[in-house]
Write a protein that binds this DNA or RNA. Structure first.
Length: 136
DNA sequence: ATTCTCACA
DNA sequence: TGTGAGTA
């Protein structure tokens, strides 16, 4: 799997992930505390999430809605894999260029991401995707 | 304007 | 989990 790195590239800040997953910042940080996700951090201690993180959050959200608690989710979900954690922080550039990335290049990545996922989960993601793209 | 940690009338 | 405080 080559583009595995791309899936683990830390791209977006918590604000975008909130719109992407419909979770509150509180919840996202809470799940991180319980090691359900391990987002990367910028030099300024800002969280940077990857597609993997977002997908995991969507899975977590689905389970939570089914009444599963943190303990249960930890068992159902594979504990954050080995060194596959975000080592590549894509952001941390000039403000302007950062927005360029999260607009043009992001669309390209999102498209690829959707193509590689199975129809079932892909549609699930597209739902969140629409809301994300309608941000302004 | 955003995000972060901490703490609880 | 929400939310406000005080930062970076």
């Amino acid at each position: 799997m080559g583009d595995d790195i791309r899936r683990n590239m830390a791209l977006f800040p918590i604000g975008i992930v909130m719109k992407l997953t419909d979770l509150t910042a509180r919840q996202i940080r809470y799940y991180e505390q319980h090691e359900l996700i391990v987002p990367a951090r910028t030099a300024g201690n800002q969280r940077l999430f990857s597609f993997n993180d977002v997908e995991r959050l969507l899975e977590i959200k689905a389970l939570i809605e089914k009444g599963v608690n943190i303990a249960g989710i930890k068992q159902v979900m594979n504990p954050v894999s080995k060194e596959s954690d975000d080592a590549t922080i894509v952001s941390e550039q000039s403000e302007v260029k950062r927005k360029e990335l999260s607009d043009a290049q992001l669309h390209r990545l999102l498209k690829q991401q959707l193509l590689e996922k199975r129809p079932g989960q892909a549609s699930l993601i597209q739902g969140q995707l629409s809301r994300f793209l309608n941000k302004r």
